[in-house]
Simulated assay, not measured.
Amino acid sequence: MKALKSFLLTFACLLLTPPVLAARPAPSPIPGPRSAPAVVSVPAADRYALRCQERAPERYRSHQGTALWGTKPSWDSSPGTNEKHSVLVSIDVNAVRKTETGVKAVRLEKGRLVAWPQTSQQVAGTVLQGTSGDGKPVEVAICAAEPASDDPELTWYRIEAWNPVAQEWENPCTADGRVPAPRAVAVSGVWDGTGARRDVPGKLTLACENGAISKCVRWGYKPWTERNGKSLVDLHQACTRMARADYCGNGRSHTRDYTVIDMYDGFGVLSPTTQASEDFDPKKITFEAAWAPDGATCISRTRDGKALSSILQECPQRFRASTVDLGEGDRCAVQREGVSPKAALLRNRSHGSP
């Protein structure tokens, strides 16, 4: 149990530094303006033949964690990030672009994809139509399926997406020092840039390992499960807000890289941690906030050390100053207008201001 809780004590990994770009030689001076080189489009037959091959190292890498999906915000190599954007936000389970095994569609069974109409067929090698954050089409190849060793309901997928800028297949998941080759998990629902989730018939999300959607599944908040007859869909969604410290429910994160957090809920999935470990001391953390699917219901303090007044300014008329005692030593300084703090599905504690 101690090992399990050590795994569940989470690092909300948030961008502090821009991506590191490989240095390039300075170009020789050339008089007059220079046009950008034209990108030659690869024919579809050749494109599909290139999927799921061994790849050279990524052109750039960055620490990530503010991102909801865990994917790259764009296909170009420019510095900076956009935690509200993604090169891949959903896939169409009925739009098979290429297959070698006769798969006509895929279906989601708990945390794994199965082929349709013949469930015995392999989904690996299938190319599906996906959509980016700006609504553009993107093709997604499922390269390999890896059943989770600790959860028979969950399967991890090695995926690639067609990069129209570089004209090559590329892992759309953003890597960091802890997970250099991220995989993805299939989750029902589609998320937008504000972090809101909705059910869209025929679509689902391939959430990368370093994103909040995927992390919340790993922490035990699996949206396909139930506790005492209640679905965990809303609890999983509340977790995505909590993981990113999205107090206002607008998709904006308020945390720092590798911040240790402890979460607990009223469903009996997780309880407060009482045992100390190498990177966690329960005596040094304090209550932070209570969470609902659309953001915090009440806040004691911010995770990134900013004044609570900055949150009140970010989402005016959403919170008001009010001391609320939730019990078990959890007290809030501001609470949500028109929402009872005790209606929260999830609470968390963290270290004080950095």
Rank of each mutant, 00 (worst) to 15 (best):
C208N: 07
T71V: 09
T302Y: 02
A148R: 05
P152H: 02
V334H: 01
F280N: 00
S353H: 15
V114G: 03
Q167A: 08
A45F: 09
A105V: 07
Y48K: 03
Y48C: 02
R47I: 09
S277G: 13
L232K: 01
H85N: 15
S86C: 03
G305Y: 13
G177W: 12
K284R: 14
L50E: 09
Q118Y: 13
L235S: 04
L15E: 15
V39I: 13
D262E: 10
E153Y: 04
R303F: 04
A175S: 12
E337T: 12
W156N: 13
S132I: 05
K283T: 13
P172S: 09
G70D: 01
L50Q: 14
L346R: 01
S231Y: 06
Y247T: 02
R55M: 09
W69Q: 06
R320D: 13
A207H: 05
A344T: 03
A245M: 14
P223I: 02
W69K: 04
S340Q: 11
V165P: 04
R55F: 10
S277R: 07
A12C: 12
P18S: 11
Y60Q: 14
A184G: 01
V40R: 14
L14C: 14
E314F: 06
L270P: 00
A141G: 03
P354E: 09
C239P: 00
I299A: 01
G70T: 01
